[in-house]
Amino acid sequence: MRGAKARDLLSRIGARNLELTHDAFDQLRGSTAAEHLRAILEHHRMLPQREPLPLVRFETWLTERVAQLPDDGTRATIGRFGTWHHLRRTRRRADHATAQLQTVTHAAKQEITEAGKFLLWLRDTYDVGPAALQQAHVDEYLSSGTSTRRHIRNFVRWLNPEQQRHGANRLDAPRRAAQSEPQLTQSQRIQLVVNCLTLEQVTLSTRIAGLLLLLWAHPLNKIVALTTADVTLEPDAMHIRLGKIPTLVPEAIAPMFWTHVRNRANQQTTNTGTDWLFPGTRAGHHLHESTLSERLLVLGIDGQRARNATLRDLGRELDPKSLINTLGYAPAIIAAHVARAGGSGSDYVTLRRRELGDQAR
């Protein structure tokens, strides 16, 4: 209400000069005040809920990005890749309440951008389009530039059906391997847990998020998407659901968790009544993972290093199946971390796959 832009929007609504429709708000694209007001109206059911904001923004970005490309076959090819591979996939993911659309759309933008750069390079260097693409072109492009070029892998593989219709050989590009795996020592991890427990001058929500990362290796994009329904309080214990099986919250920190659940942030503002465990400042939305990442730095926590260290230490203490069910990670990720940690049962996934194969035969 104190901002001039917000006052102007509300005055226009009151004077019936701005309709309460999504189409009307779409005409105000680029206005932070308009998007904030739209979120409030949706949250309080004065506007109908529409597609998730990350999906809407991705559609807009895709249209603008494709329009910037030359109309020599590049624009059409990237348009099809963005629409039929990434946008369709993102729409399917949006149907699931637990989908991490921010992460999905970020990765999609990287791949689409790098695919466009690749086709521009192909045209500038050899004056050919995607129909004439050969494996030698892919290999040369990957070997002559930065590691970000490896994001073309899915695009190259997506092109294969079209290439094979023209009688060309199957194309491929290697996965982008991480150059390093940053992580903490055990003593550093323990000290960060102590920071979460004792630094009371830091907001409780940030300390709770830090514990979820340091004790259970829960990724930041999944931490912010937790809801109050994921926390259950029974007469003798508190549990939190991160994977298929709820995990016990240690008795020593359960009071902290319960205090946070009852006193979550932004409940006296526009985001009142939300079920998010970490509500954001925008009505109906949870905290953004990049915001949480910045807040954790106050505690000395780097998300990636802390996650790797926690998975390593848990891999030494628990068997892979328990970790998969409790933490909600994919089997391949758990197997890799357990193997690096030298934990028992590091070959569990491989053995289980063989077992299922034998049963099928």
Rank of each mutant, 00 (worst) to 15 (best):
E114D: 00
R312H: 13
G342K: 12
Q68W: 00
T125G: 02
L142R: 02
L184W: 15
G328Q: 01
L297E: 07
I112E: 01
R123S: 09
S180C: 15
H337Q: 11
R16Q: 04
R29E: 11
A173H: 09
P174W: 11
W158P: 05
M46Q: 13
R93M: 12
H86I: 05
G73F: 03
L9N: 12
D139M: 00
L9D: 05
G243L: 00
T113D: 11
G243H: 00
A15D: 01
A217D: 12
R29W: 10
C196K: 01
A33K: 12
A131Q: 01
L242H: 00
G82T: 11
G30E: 10
R295V: 01
N17T: 10
T272F: 09
D230L: 09
H285M: 15
N263A: 08
A132G: 00
R153P: 03
P48W: 09
V156I: 15
P174G: 10
F155S: 07
P320E: 13
A336R: 12
I324M: 05
I333T: 14
D347R: 01
S205F: 07
L53P: 08
R305W: 03
L215I: 04
N169W: 03
W61P: 03
R75H: 00
A76N: 10
V194I: 02
L226Q: 08
A173T: 05
R354C: 03
F155W: 01
N325P: 00
N160K: 06
N325V: 00
L159M: 05
F155N: 05
R353M: 12
R295N: 07
S143Y: 01
L133N: 06
F25S: 06
A237M: 13
R353N: 14
E59P: 03
E19W: 02
P246E: 15
E140T: 12
R80K: 11
W276R: 03
E111M: 03
L242A: 02
V224T: 11
L55Q: 04
H218V: 07
Q164L: 09
S31V: 07
A178R: 04
A332S: 14
T247D: 08
K222V: 15
D23F: 08
P174Y: 11
L120M: 10
R91Y: 07
L292Q: 02
R38W: 00
M238A: 15
T198M: 06
L311V: 07
L318W: 15
G243Q: 00
P219H: 01
R353E: 05
A330M: 06
H260W: 15
E19C: 04
I190E: 09
L10R: 06
T146R: 12
E162R: 13
L215N: 02
D23G: 14
A309G: 07
L20M: 05
T198W: 03
N17M: 12
I208A: 03
P320Y: 15
K109G: 07
E234N: 07
S344K: 11
H218E: 04
Q134H: 01
L184P: 09
H260G: 04
R352I: 13
L159Y: 01
Y329M: 13
I301D: 08
A265G: 08
V298R: 06
P320G: 14
P331Q: 07
W61G: 01
E114C: 00
R2C: 14
A67R: 10
I78R: 15
P219M: 02
L10N: 08
A339R: 15
V298I: 14
P219Y: 01
